[in-house]
């Protein structure tokens, strides 16, 4: 098996390297890739879309159709992890661990019975470690600032590196930080599963819906200049605003999918004990 793998990898590598014989050199300003399409993008972005960040303009406007499908890919991945892993009905009842807060004594309750809720006992995970006050407090402090930074990244995608995907991942990371520093049940209490799943679909619907709105207003799909009549501005500014709307949709979808995938994978679908 190793020899077959080695032969396949070597022959493919030789084929690919020999095919680079005719490539333009690295960082050559006169290469076909740099002279065919990209001058149009670089020179005309400001006057056609009034967005200084060329990558955002190309991503969300010129090739916005691709980005819509990219958002659909990440949604599909979240849906796939959900459908593969989520278990709604447990077959074998499992043991739960409870800890008496004052004395530190651990109680194992067998076969799915539960203790009545009281302040003296807290539910702990099977992989429980002693609580570290510093980590818990600092993470709780940081999470709102992380989220604020994420909103900044989404909103300033026009002028600085950033945009919907980057901001959405940071937003998702803030909730996952809550799950890692405390436990999964805390973060699921903050961001419920049903809200998460519906919001994920809503995020992609914002993107596709904006495009469909442009279609209904008479122009082609995802032609943001059709929004000029709705937003009461000129077509070029309408493109800039259209890009912002779809980036918000992307951010929401990516945030919810990150949280959804993390919840499903770390608890293997049971949603009671995380990492």
């Amino acid at each position: 098996m190793k020899i077959i793998g080695l032969i396949i990898a070597l022959s493919t590598g030789v084929l690919l390297i020999s095919a680079t014989g005719d490539f333009p050199g690295w960082a050559d300003p006169a290469s076909p890739a740099s002279t065919h399409l990209s001058p149009h993008f670089i020179e005309k972005t400001m006057e056609e879309t009034s967005v200084p960040n060329i990558v955002t303009a190309v991503l969300a406007d010129y090739r916005g159709y691709d980005t819509m499908y990219e958002t659909a890919v990440i949604f599909t991945a979240g849906l796939a992890c959900f459908i593969l892993l989520r278990i709604f009905v447990r077959e074998e009842p499992e043991d739960r661990l409870y800890r008496h807060v004052l004395t530190g004594v651990t109680v194992r309750v067998k076969e799915g019975a539960k203790l009545p809720p009281s302040d003296d006992f807290e539910r702990i995970d099977a992989t429980w470690t002693p609580p570290d006050l510093i980590i818990k407090t600092i993470c709780r402090f940081l999470i709102p600032f992380i989220q604020l930074f994420a909103l900044y990244v989404i909103a300033h995608g026009h002028h600085s590196p950033g945009g919907g995907f980057q901001g959405g991942v940071i937003l998702g990371a803030s909730i996952i930080l809550l799950a890692i520093s405390q436990d999964l049940r805390t973060s699921v209490r903050r961001m419920r599963e049903k809200l998460d799943a519906v919001l994920c679909a809503v995020g992609v619907i914002i993107y596709a819906g904006t495009g469909a709105l442009c279609l209904l207003l008479g122009l082609n799909f995802l032609d943001y200049s059709a929004l000029a009549s709705v937003l009461h501005c000129d077509p070029v500014t309408a493109r800039s605003h259209g890009i912002l709307i779809v980036e918000i949709g992307v951010g929401i979808a990516v945030m919810c999918t990150m949280i959804w995938i993390y919840n499903n994978v770390s608890s293997t679908g049971k949603y009671d004990e995380g990492l």
Binding site: D28, P29, M46, P52, N53, V55, P161
Partner: peptide, 9 residues
């Protein structure tokens, strides 16, 4: 690209 900067105007 040799001698060029990031694509933000």
């Amino acid at each position: 690209k040799r001698g060029a900067t990031i694509p933000i105007l």
